[in-house]
Design a protein around this nucleic acid. Structure first.
Lengths: 219, 219
DNA sequence: ACCTGAACACCGTTCAAGT
DNA sequence: ACCTGAACACCGTTCAAGT
């Protein structure tokens, strides 16, 4: 007979598992942001020391990668409605919006060549849509990277725009200096122009058009 | 008469200036990589305490941005030879190669909406080339961001590919699972295929084609 | 004004030692 | 095997106090 567990030990200190660790990491991220997802904070949450985590996780980068893949599970699958371009843009937009909430993860995604389960599903979905659109295989293979890179980088850019006046000063100065930077000055309004959603959408369309119409001379 | 400086004080502890600080930071980066460019290490190099640097630099992010702009001074200006597309690709490739040496800076560039002097010169150059190519102004304004984002993100991806077997395992598994991920499996070779220079070049061409042929419906 | 010592509040990772 | 205490080697940033 095993010793009866006292009901007083509230969280009952569950045994460490990789799943439990990743779940706790996701929890911390949702509560306090990715920056607080550190080995030490995570260990504290799990009522142990940081060294214990290294049995299940190689390092902080791998931990962040695992958290990323978890989040990727919430990307919406493509609806049946619309042609392939519309559906492609919708999936990519959903992916981008998921990362928008956690720009730190987008940074991690950029660096880690993700290979998690949910990431692979997303990749498969995108390739299927490109195939449906009749995009030549060689172009689709390289093009899908372009699409994901744009989405990921756009989300990563959304980090703490720490910039106050400092940020503006450089570009603003150039915008007014018709002398030294005529083209920048001439496009003043448009360079900074507005609606991020419209920009993102145009970006995807430009990318799709480019992928569709740019042959790979090496094949 | 000022006190004669002893010849023995070799580096003579030069007075702190923003320029001197940034120069020292660049030196550390070239010697030991961006990761070692920390306030504390920099202070040590300048024979002072970290607190002193905050008179000249708001924080670490701003320091990295300054180092980035310094490096951007080494991007090669466009040659006269070739049509606008070739010259555009050459400038962008030069920019990418400069960042390849220091992926950490590419990461910084992605996040910081650079606004340094050398960055603005680069932006002006790119816009001039797009204008020469007859790219409609509205498309050029948004397109230039797409081009720089691709270059920057590609360089940023070049960070420590810490991945050994771990990295491969996920994608490799999918490549073989014709069942669950037929499109990935079908493109196995091409998804990972080779020459980064060829990929980068094709990427720029696809981007240029897309920018050229994708109207902005909001104008 | 400029500079600094010292402190506050953290990090990742390793390793010998325990169970 | 799994887990841990303790240590090693660092971080960024602030602030009261000095010159």
């Amino acid at each position: 007979m095993t010793a009866p567990r006292s009901r007083r030990e509230r969280p009952a200190k569950p045994a460490l598992t990789r799943e439990g660790i990743v779940a706790a990491a996701v929890g911390i991220m949702r509560a306090d942001g990715l920056r607080k997802v550190t080995m030490r904070r995570l260990a504290e949450e799990l009522d142990t020391g940081p060294a214990s985590l290294y049995v299940y996780v190689r390092n902080t980068a791998e931990l962040h990668a695992a958290v990323l893949d978890e989040l990727l599970g919430t990307v919406e699958p493509p609806e049946a409605a619309g042609d392939w371009r519309e559906r492609l843009e919708r999936v990519l937009t959903s992916y981008t919006l998921v990362l928008f909430e956690h720009p730190g993860l987008a940074q991690a995604a950029l660096m880690s060549r993700p290979s998690g389960h949910n990431y692979l599903n997303l990749l498969e979905t995108l390739l299927a849509l490109l195939d449906e659109g009749g995009v030549p295989r060689a172009q689709a293979a390289w093009g899908v990277d372009l699409l994901l890179q744009h989405a990921t980088a756009t989300a990563a850019e959304h980090s703490e725009h720490s910039g106050d006046a400092q940020d503006m000063s450089g570009l603003a100065a150039a915008l007014n200096s018709t002398q030294s930077h005529p083209h920048i000055a001439g496009l003043a309004t448009d360079l900074l122009s507005g609606d991020p959603r419209a920009r993102l959408s145009w970006g995807f369309q430009a990318l799709i058009n480019g992928i569709l119409h740019t042959h790979r001379s090496d094949t």
